[in-house]
Design a protein around this nucleic acid. Sequence first.
DNA 1: ATGTTTGCAAATAGTTTGCATCCAG
DNA 2: CTGGATGCAAACTATTTGCAAACAT
Lengths: 145, 145
Amino acid sequence: MEKRTLDEFKERCKAFGLKITPQRIAIYQEILNSSNHPSAEAIYRNIREAHPNISFDTVNRTLLTLAEMGFIQVVEGSGDVRRFDSNAEPHHHLRCNQCGAIIDFYNRKYDQLEIPKEIQGKFSVNKIRVVLEGICSSCQENLKE
Amino acid sequence: MEKRTLDEFKERCKAFGLKITPQRIAIYQEILNSSNHPSAEAIYRNIREAHPNISFDTVNRTLLTLAEMGFIQVVEGSGDVRRFDSNAEPHHHLRCNQCGAIIDFYNRKYDQLEIPKEIQGKFSVNKIRVVLEGICSSCQENLKE
DNA sequence: ATGTTTGCAAATAGTTTGCATCCAG
DNA sequence: CTGGATGCAAACTATTTGCAAACAT
């Protein structure tokens, strides 16, 4: 379990050539406190209480930067245009982080994954989907060049 | 494997109280041909070739309707506002189809799922994520009322 | 000093809504 | 006929871009 300290954050910023600004620190602290999956707007609202002068753009841009650094993640697919899947059968997805392609695949084992006990009863599951993220073959080709 | 015929589509429309219009049929045929995961815009462009008078709104609205019918799916999360996940550790998601909540959970077994042989080599996987879709406990409560 | 970051404003993109007209049932 | 569906336009919402001023290094 990697530890998440302010110092570690500063180190990482340096490693990425990013300056340490009060705004970045405020955003860093806010996002670590949020246990749900907030939008930029929600984070902005919270931060404003302590930092009334911060702008929404800074929050939004910084979150995107933090995601690039790998400090946080963007919840899959959100923010993109809506895409439809003509395949109504149960199936799983390969997702290319480079080009954004989504490739369907089928797998019996994945369809039949066991639902963890902690979840049974609390949450009623009606679909299991496995998403494998990575780099598709054509992007791998392109990266070689 | 359920079969996808025009007749079956018409049946389903009737079952949902939806009228059978030339536009619906065109959209139905187009979406079945698309093996990738198109946006409404992309489907609209394709349909226009054969049906130059169709409007984008009709395409978009019909796709949403087809998704409600369960005829097609919407790719997870897409079209929503962007949401961030402060948790950079590998973890999995519970997704409530009612209220849209995303709940993190951890599971060792899921982290270590075997990558299907067909995929190894073709696609380089660097993250495995399991998404369990269903209804969260608080929405289950609300539905009882 | 200087190059990045910020805050503001404007532009863009995507989605949704309202409504008059049209058409399937 | 009649209610749902369509097409157009306008309204919204979210996201991105450009740029001058401010700031970290």
